[in-house]
């Protein structure tokens, strides 16, 4: 469906976004963060899900809805334990228990805000497309349950959806994964914006 060239373009655009996001987070945490080459999947929901990890692994997810010219969803997934670690790094509170407390949750939501803001602003500047981002929502649950809900709700009206994901590896052995999910209208909008840019 996407040509190699279009995939390269998308990868490059997401690289700009996730590069900005990881720089913002690295500054906040004062440590190095490595962002991987983005993975691009364009398929039906049931074919995408098995490629994203074990359905019953436990994760914390911070999600932001994106409206405007590039409608979709941006979210960060962290293994449960890493979510607790990151919250403790941010709040300075000792890690305790197996669930995030109120303070830890709002610290992670703020990370979601900063990461989505940094990456979407970069994207929007690069493409000349406007967007509005929602306040973040956080939940901890099984990866499969979270992903299927996000993908089905985003792709309800469509057969295939576009998902782009990047791994962030922290110097302190913490791992997070950024996801961008666009519906086909947004995807076409992004591709034609790239075309316009290239023709200039």
């Amino acid at each position: 469906m996407f040509t190699e060239f279009e995939q390269d373009e998308l990868r490059e655009i997401v690289n700009i976004g996730s590069g900005n996001a990881s720089t913002a987070l690295a500054k906040m945490l004062k440590q190095k963060i490595h962002a991987s080459v983005p993975l691009i999947l364009f398929d039906e929901v049931q074919n995408i899900l098995p490629k994203l990890g074990l359905a019953d692994s436990r994760v914390t997810v911070v999600l932001v809805r994106v409206d405007g010219e590039i409608p979709g969803v941006f979210f960060i997934a962290l293994p449960l334990e890493n979510g607790l670690e990151l919250a403790s790094m941010l709040t300075g509170e000792e890690k305790s228990g197996t669930l995030l407390n109120e303070f830890g949750s709002s610290a992670l939501k703020e990370v979601g805000n900063i990461l989505s803001g940094a990456s979407l602003t970069a994207l929007s500047k690069f493409l000349g497309l406007d967007f509005v981002q929602s306040v973040p929502e956080i939940t901890s649950d099984m990866l499969g349950a979270i992903l299927e809900s996000i993908l089905v709700e985003t792709g309800e009206a469509y057969e295939k959806i576009l998902l782009i994901s990047t791994n962030l590896d922290f110097a302190t052995d913490c791992h997070a994964r950024l996801f961008f999910v666009f519906n086909p209208d947004a995807t076409n909008g992004i591709l034609s914006a790239v075309q316009r840019k290239l023709e200039k």
Binding site: Q46, L54, A55, D56, D141, E148
Partner: peptide, 22 residues
């Protein structure tokens, strides 16, 4: 079984993980 799959059997166990809005 995964999301969007079906299974029938007369022995053992059929299991699925990570049921959200499905």
């Amino acid at each position: 079984i995964g999301t969007g799959e079906v299974a029938v059997s007369s022995t053992g166990i059929i299991k699925t993980s990570g049921i959200g809005s499905c």
